[in-house]
Simulated scan of single mutants.
Amino acid sequence: MTKHSRFDLDGRLALVTGAGQGIGAACAMVLAEQGATVICSDLSAERAAVTAARLERAGQACALDVTDSAALNALAARLPPLDILVCNAGIVSNTPAETMSDEEWERVMAINLGGVFKTCRAFGGRMLERGRGSIVNIGSMSGMIVNVPQPQCHYNASKAAVHHLTRSLAVEWASRGIRVNAVAPTYISTPLLQELEKEQALIARWLELTPQQRMGRPEEVASVVAFLASDAASLITGTVINADGGYTCL
């Protein structure tokens, strides 16, 4: 008799937003390694296609703007109900609150929070029709602490809201077979941070505040996502798991 692992994702259909790079690309890779068929979506169709081409199993790619409800609903209607949804698409910028424009505040909120809600609504609705599914949102330790020394109140607020949105959806949908969880990473070595690599004083400050004294890797976040997506996490919903090297312990 073949032993079936509760960590396996064989036969599952997954969609990852922001899959063109960084954490999103790593999530697509790890989910595929565990057996899932993965749809890689990104604002850039080209980046999504690059990730899809790297998957062990044949991946699919599509352009997707998570702020566009019509596009989300249309894609959700074309696809079979997902088994796994990973809401990863997001942006960050560093601007002092007193000089931040309305446009910058609203853009970060529209993508980081509104995009997660709209994506969960579109694809979660299809999951509810079938009565099962796992949603994993990518939050941040910034939803629990205030990062220093960089000013990013809009990003911090958006990620705190993602955490509470995760808990709220989990409670609403728990009795209908849908689990909703989030992962809260520390600073991760991704393309979003490439420009900051020149800021050695800033990086040194981050490492000083991190007990493990290092930044995380995208695949370390993806491994937590894969666990939450699997049957091994069947009792877990409404949880935000820190993947932060101990940062929020201080």
Rank of each mutant, 00 (worst) to 15 (best):
G238M: 09
E103Y: 00
M1V: 12
I135A: 05
Q200D: 10
D42T: 08
V136I: 14
D83S: 10
W206P: 01
E104C: 00
L64G: 04
P149Q: 12
V38Y: 09
N137F: 11
P96I: 00
A174P: 01
A89I: 05
M109H: 11
L9M: 07
D10I: 13
Q212C: 09
A19G: 01
V50H: 07
P81M: 08
I203M: 13
S234P: 02
T237E: 10
H154P: 00
N94C: 03
E104V: 07
L165I: 11
V136M: 06
A201D: 15
H163Q: 13
A232C: 05
R126M: 10
F7L: 15
P96C: 00
A77H: 12
I241D: 02
H164C: 01
L192V: 03
V183A: 05
L31H: 05
V66Q: 08
T237V: 07
I23H: 00
L43Y: 14
L79I: 03
A184K: 00
L15R: 04
T2C: 00
M144E: 14
S93G: 02
T67V: 09
D68G: 06
D68C: 08
G177I: 03
G143T: 10
A160W: 05
A61R: 06
G238L: 09
G90S: 07
V16A: 02
Y155S: 05
R214S: 12
N181V: 02
S41H: 06
P80Y: 01
Y247S: 02
L169D: 10
G20I: 04
G59Y: 08
R57F: 04
G133K: 09
I145K: 12
R47K: 14
N181G: 00
L169R: 06
L31C: 08
M1P: 09
W105Q: 02
G245R: 10
I145E: 13
A229C: 15
A232Q: 14
A70G: 02
I178A: 04
A229I: 13
E220M: 12
V38I: 11
A201W: 03
M109Q: 12
L9G: 05
V221K: 07
V180I: 09
R12T: 07
T37H: 15
P211D: 11
A204Y: 01
S168H: 12
G246S: 11
R179E: 05
A19F: 03
Q200Y: 00
V50R: 12
R54S: 15
E208G: 06
H164T: 14
V148R: 15
S175E: 13
L165Y: 05
G11T: 04
A170D: 07
I203H: 08
G24P: 06
L55Y: 08
R47E: 12
S101Q: 02
T51N: 04
R179T: 11
L207W: 09
G18T: 04
V108G: 00
A49M: 07
T17R: 03
A170S: 14
C249M: 14
L55V: 08
S223K: 15
A229N: 08
D65H: 07
I84N: 03
L72H: 05
I23A: 02
C27W: 01
L13Q: 09
L196Y: 09
Y187H: 06
E56Q: 14
A243S: 12
M215T: 15
Q194N: 13
